[in-house]
């Protein structure tokens, strides 16, 4: 039942190359995913601002357009404001815990350094070891980076809170039962002969195509995330053949081989969406001209737009809060490791200090 525990050991050069490759890959994948998500946000934003698809669904002028009803159901199904409240409640505690761990870790360094300085002052040149202030520099730098990260997280919390404050009313409205929601939407005059209209047909087709583009991006994202291959054999071979690893050249080639196709497809998808959005906006202009425009209709339209945007904001908030929670929990682990590092080195210093004191007293 022998298993070689060293089977994954590689030369240092390969380890470093793998690390650098990992960074490149992460950058590429994150960039592609960010592009795609941004374009979905853009599409949603444009549609909401044009009151689509609600406007072309709104035949009666006083019942809730199906798409708005669907959005309301989606928000309710995900727990509505309660989900958000819950996630938001936990964040300050998580932040506080992380702060405390970091503060504690750095405090033990500070305390030991004070004592070391005192002894240095007392024994002067007889206190021969490296000063703690010198020794602890890398740890303090690391601690400083952690603090910066916590500051960024605090700012992120604030952004999320503000977003919540701005949109909680609309989200609450979306969570109401259908009858109540309907009552909150101003009545408008029904749009005349809506269904048969050519421009409505066109808009429906374009919106369906836009939805397809969104779905395609979801597929891409899943596919891109599941691409997996092992670079260690490539780097090992290069090292064996050439005695050195040209990491950049090898990584770029391999990344292009595995992701190049996706990069291409994503670009095509984004371009297609750009064209669709332009056509949708043009068609919407036509549509607006052909529909009766008055105060009632405008008020209704504004409310429907707000509700559509509210759904998107809810989704965004939930994502932000999940991201924040994940960050704080993951960061706790990192900080605990850091704290252990600090207390370990301080313990070693104390032991060393006691030895030195003993020697000095004896001499």
């Amino acid at each position: 039942k022998f298993t070689d525990v060293f089977v994954k050991m590689v030369p240092l050069a390969v380890q470093q190359a793998l690390s650098a490759y990992g960074q490149r890959r992460a950058d590429l994948v994150n960039r592609l995913i960010a592009q795609m998500r941004e374009s979905t946000n853009l599409a949603n934003g444009v549609l909401a601002s044009l009151n689509l698809p609600a406007a072309i669904e709104d035949v009666s002028g006083d019942s809730i357009p199906q798409s708005i009803l669907d959005k309301s159901k989606a928000v309710i199904q995900q727990g509505g404001l309660q989900t958000i409240d819950q996630l938001m409640r936990d964040l300050p505690e998580l932040l506080q815990r992380n702060r405390e761990i970091l503060d504690e870790a750095l405090k033990v360094l500070d305390q030991e350094e004070v004592t070391d300085n005192e002894l240095k002052a007392k024994f002067k040149e007889r206190w021969k070891r490296t000063p703690s202030s010198e020794l602890y520099k890398p740890l303090r730098t690391e601690g400083g980076n952690f603090r910066t990260a916590l500051d960024r997280a605090t700012h992120a919390d604030k952004v999320v809170r503000e977003r919540y404050a701005t949109h909680s009313e609309v989200i609450a409205l979306l969570c109401k039962p259908e009858a109540e929601l309907n009552a909150a939407i101003p009545s408008g005059n029904p749009t005349k002969s809506l269904q048969g209209s050519e421009v409505v047909m066109l808009l429906k087709t374009l919106l369906a195509a836009l939805n397809e583009a969104k779905k395609e991006r979801e597929t891409f994202e899943n596919d891109i995330k599941s691409v997996q291959f092992d670079m260690s054999s490539k780097f090992l071979t290069a090292l064996a053949q050439d005695g050195a690893i040209n990491e950049e050249a090898i990584s770029v080639t391999e990344l292009d081989r595995y992701y190049g196709g996706y990069t291409e497809k994503v670009q095509q998808n984004l371009k297609k969406q750009e064209e669709l959005l332009a056509k949708i906006q043009a068609a919407h202009e036509e549509f607006s001209k052909s529909t009766q425009s008055n105060t009632d209709a405008n008020q209704r339209e504004e409310m429907l737009k707000k509700l559509a945007a509210g759904h998107d904001q809810f989704v965004e908030l939930v994502n932000n809060l999940k991201e924040g929670t994940k960050f704080y929990n993951g960061f706790t682990e990192i900080l605990l490791k850091f704290q252990t590092k600090c207390s370990d080195i301080v313990f070693a210093r104390k032991t060393e200090r006691d030895e030195l004191l003993k020697d000095l007293q004896q001499s």
Binding site: P138, N145, A149, A156, N320, E323, G324, F331, I334
Partner: peptide, 16 residues
């Protein structure tokens, strides 16, 4: 993304 990347914060330092 709003929050810092955990990957950037994980430092694998060689034990000295």
């Amino acid at each position: 993304s709003l929050y810092p990347s955990l990957e950037d914060l994980k430092v694998d330092k060689v034990i000295q």
